[in-house]
């Protein structure tokens, strides 16, 4: 092929081009190799394995003896009241956490961006919860929600985490407090990236504060906002640590979320194949949610 290229291109530039393209391909492949290896081992590998497991009555001790059962796990799942309970609990948790986290972090970011005194201190305070691990957050809020804790003392309701009505809102409040910080930092950076001159131009064009917000700030922050919305949805759908530590799914399974249910099925019930099917259903839900968000929020020029 190189020969023919050389013949058609009298100056031989075709040959050089194909050579340089090969070189470029090798360089590209070399640079992406570490990612491909790591993602292959820890992401795509398990993904394929989980799909494989979900189609079997999996024997954890002797995988070779696992029985292929096709979509049976998925069929059982659809009529499993515990799975539906976990799904509804998760949706409830998503509903309780996603809007406050996104709106709250946006308001905090816009607020701190203004010329307020002690900006630096506020930024630090708002960000600090995020450095805590889920265990610390869980234990801290378990104390706060305890019957003798600060929150029942001021608001009432006894021990929130043992009340079927208040346990999930309690977990949601802890999560909002914890997760707000990450989005806040991203949105603050995004807001600071919007050039002042756009606001000056808008001011001369006669835009009010609200119009600047709608026509300049939000469109200019759209990409980070889409990112924040998708990440928050994914995080909330995958909630595990908080209910695991604070309520262990109780009382009466009122805080058992999908991942918690998956965990219990797999490691308490030893139903690995079934748990893999639960995981796959969650995976499909997350893909659908992310795609929907992206479709509606990202707009035409993305």
């Amino acid at each position: 092929m190189a020969q023919s290229t050389q013949q058609t291109d009298a100056d031989g530039s075709g040959l050089d081009r194909s050579k340089s393209m090969t070189r470029e391909w090798i360089a590209g492949a070399t640079f992406s190799l570490p990612y491909i290896l790591i993602a292959g081992t820890f992401l795509f590998g398990p993904l394929v394995l989980a799909l494989y497991m979900s189609l079997h009555d999996w024997n954890a001790l002797a995988p070779a003896q696992s029985q292929f059962i096709g979509f049976e796990n998925y069929q059982i799942l659809l009529s499993d009241p515990d799975f539906w309970n976990a799904l509804w609990n998760t949706l409830y948790f998503v509903f309780l956490t996603v809007p406050p986290i996104i709106i709250g972090s946006l308001l905090l970011a816009l607020g701190v961006n203004r010329d307020v005194k002690g900006k630096w201190l506020l930024r630090t305070i708002f960000f600090s919860p995020y450095v805590l691990t889920v265990a610390v957050v869980g234990l801290l809020w378990t104390e706060l929600f305890n019957a003798s804790g600060l929150i029942p003392y001021h608001i009432g309701g006894g021990n929130w985490l043992t009340s079927p009505e208040l346990a999930m809102p309690g977990i949601a409040i802890a999560t909002i407090w914890w997760q707000l910080a990450f989005n806040f930092i991203i949105l603050l950076a995004a807001r600071q990236n919007v050039p002042d001159r756009l606001y000056e131009a808008a001011k001369l064009d006669g835009a009010s504060t609200g119009q600047m917000m709608r026509h300049i700030t939000i469109p200019q922050m759209r990409n980070p906002l889409v990112f924040v919305v998708i990440v928050t949805f994914v995080n909330s759908f995958q909630v595990f640590g908080q209910p695991f530590i604070m309520t262990n799914g109780g009382p009466t399974f009122s805080t058992t979320t999908i991942v918690l249910y998956l965990y219990e099925t797999a490691f308490t019930g030893r139903e690995f194949g079934y748990a893999a099917a639960v995981g796959y259903v969650l995976f499909m839900i997350l893909i659908a949610i992310s795609a929907t968000n992206y479709y509606f929020l990202a707009g035409d020029d993305q």
Partner: peptide
Amino acid sequence: QDRGIAMVFQNYALYPH
């Protein structure tokens, strides 16, 4: 906006979106 002025900025300040 009520002064009857219009301005051309150094970096144009066009709305990118």
